[in-house]
């Protein structure tokens, strides 16, 4: 073995370790800024109209329920939000939904696998951001949307086409950094 190849052999593990370290560092940095999410899964519905559905209201909420037809051609972007009173991140998300609703963004709520009485208590305590509110107790419509957890939100453009899906709570950061830009982009 020549001295050169011996030196190369010695350097190889160090190079591999350094490369791996750099890779992990980048992944962690990108995870921290939200640019990379290892559990993130793209929605299969991007670029499509929402699936057909017609859901019942949450009784005594005083908010009208909605069907797929109600999401077509609103003339402005809208948010469809799957939530539940038993979902802790939904509490974190709620103020952002309230803010969006105050700014005139139509927010459509679907209470997922929730007892109607619990949904009502949640909305009385935290406020109602939903222009329309329906319930999906069996969770079948949620499956048609490709929902795999709550909260999950879908941004529809002015024509009612799904443009963006966010799995997880819309934090103030997500609202400011992502959703605002998307709302502006799909304003008409």
């Amino acid at each position: 073995m020549t001295p050169l190849s011996r030196r190369l052999l010695l350097a190889a593990p160090f190079a591999a370790a350094a490369l791996g370290g750099a890779g992990f560092y980048t992944a962690l940095q990108r995870q921290r800024t939200g640019a990379y999410n290892p559990r993130g899964v793209p929605s299969a519905l991007i670029g499509q109209a929402p699936p057909a559905f017609d859901l019942p209201p949450v009784p005594e909420s005083g908010v009208e329920p909605f069907a797929a037809a109600d999401l077509r051609g609103l003339g402005q972007p809208a948010l469809v939000n799957f939530w539940a009173s038993w979902c802790v991140p939904c509490v974190i998300e709620h103020p952002q939904l309230m803010a969006l609703s105050r700014q005139g963004v139509p927010v459509f709520g679907i209470a997922y696998k929730d007892k109607p009485a619990d949904s009502l208590t949640f909305l009385r305590r935290h406020g109602n951001p939903f222009r329309r509110l329906a319930q999906d107790v069996p969770g079948r419509v949620a499956i048609d949307w490709g929902v795999y957890g709550v909260p999950e939100s879908y941004l529809l453009d002015a024509q009612g086409i799904i443009r963006w899906r966010y799995a997880g709570p819309i934090t103030p950061e997500v609202l400011e950094q992502d959703l605002r830009i998307l709302l502006a982009r799909h304003a008409a």
Binding site: P42, A44, P51, G146
Partner: peptide
Amino acid sequence: LHARYGDF
């Protein structure tokens, strides 16, 4: 299922 949840 693929139409709803994609390749994943």
